[in-house]
Simulated assay, not measured.
Amino acid sequence: MTEAAAAAVYELAQVNIARLKFPLDSPELTDFVDALDPVNAVAEAADGFVWRLQSDSGDATDIAVFGDDWLIINMSVWRDTNALTAFIYQGQHRELLARRREWFERVEEAMATLWWVPAGHRPTVAEAEDRLRHLRAHGATSYAFTLRTSFPAGASAPVLGELPEGLGCGV
């Protein structure tokens, strides 16, 4: 399948979760919480953005993941890895990413993964949890992978990618 044909058939799902250091309504998380709406607006306007998980509150901070009240989830769908990468490592999102250790616990296990979904499919939290468990158990595969070791839609061989220095992001 050509890259263009794969792009018409598949979209890229991403999930990342984080363990909060403080309650969402604490003064320590004010900068993070205040940035949610503006960063989500930038994401929605970004080239290649398709969809993002949100509750009635407009974000996903109140959606349960892994049955842990201290975990928050971000899940979205993008045209491809290039579109997702362009959003992650630019502008206000990059600035917030650089500050993540102020707000979130450092966790050794994988907290982010990517996978291809049929165009138009919107993944569920249960799907995301399954993909993340798979990545933790098996490493990057075509079923669940990272930007550092990604798999083109419909491929079984990885593509090793380079990410911007200093961010240490495992997405």
Rank of each mutant, 00 (worst) to 15 (best):
residue 36 L to N: 12
residue 75 M to S: 14
residue 86 A to Q: 13
residue 36 L to A: 04
residue 116 W to M: 00
residue 61 T to R: 10
residue 167 L to W: 07
residue 13 A to V: 02
residue 112 A to N: 06
residue 11 E to P: 02
residue 166 G to S: 11
residue 47 D to S: 09
residue 143 Y to I: 12
residue 140 A to S: 11
residue 34 D to V: 00
residue 64 A to H: 09
residue 113 T to R: 09
residue 25 D to T: 01
residue 9 V to W: 10
residue 93 H to S: 00
residue 99 R to W: 06
residue 63 I to N: 02
residue 124 T to E: 00
residue 134 H to R: 11
residue 122 R to Q: 14
residue 108 E to C: 08
residue 37 D to A: 15
residue 8 A to F: 13
residue 152 P to D: 11
residue 50 V to K: 06
residue 165 E to K: 14
residue 106 R to E: 12
residue 59 D to Q: 00
residue 22 F to V: 00
residue 95 E to A: 13
residue 119 A to M: 01
residue 69 D to L: 07
residue 86 A to N: 09
residue 162 E to T: 06
residue 41 A to M: 04
residue 135 L to H: 03
residue 48 G to Y: 14
residue 162 E to A: 04
residue 143 Y to E: 15
residue 35 A to C: 06
residue 92 Q to E: 11
residue 46 A to I: 00
residue 144 A to Q: 04
residue 7 A to Q: 13
residue 77 V to Y: 04
residue 54 Q to L: 10
residue 119 A to L: 03
residue 41 A to G: 04
residue 43 A to S: 15
residue 117 V to G: 03
residue 143 Y to L: 15
residue 85 T to K: 07
residue 153 A to H: 04
residue 84 L to I: 03
residue 101 R to E: 15
residue 105 E to R: 11
residue 121 H to N: 05
residue 164 P to I: 02
residue 47 D to H: 11
residue 78 W to A: 04
residue 53 L to K: 01
residue 43 A to N: 02
residue 62 D to T: 11
residue 142 S to P: 07
residue 140 A to F: 07
residue 49 F to V: 00
residue 141 T to K: 01
residue 157 A to L: 10
residue 110 A to F: 07
residue 30 T to I: 05
residue 129 E to D: 03
residue 157 A to C: 06
residue 50 V to A: 08
residue 127 E to Y: 11
residue 148 R to W: 12
residue 87 F to S: 00
residue 65 V to M: 08
residue 159 V to T: 13
residue 51 W to F: 03
residue 53 L to V: 04
residue 143 Y to T: 15
residue 73 I to S: 12
residue 67 G to R: 01
residue 103 W to T: 07
residue 26 S to R: 03
residue 135 L to W: 04
residue 16 N to V: 12
residue 158 P to R: 05
residue 22 F to D: 06
residue 63 I to Y: 02
residue 30 T to G: 12
residue 147 L to Q: 12
residue 158 P to G: 12
residue 160 L to P: 10
residue 9 V to T: 14
residue 149 T to P: 00
residue 130 D to H: 14
residue 70 W to A: 15
residue 129 E to S: 10
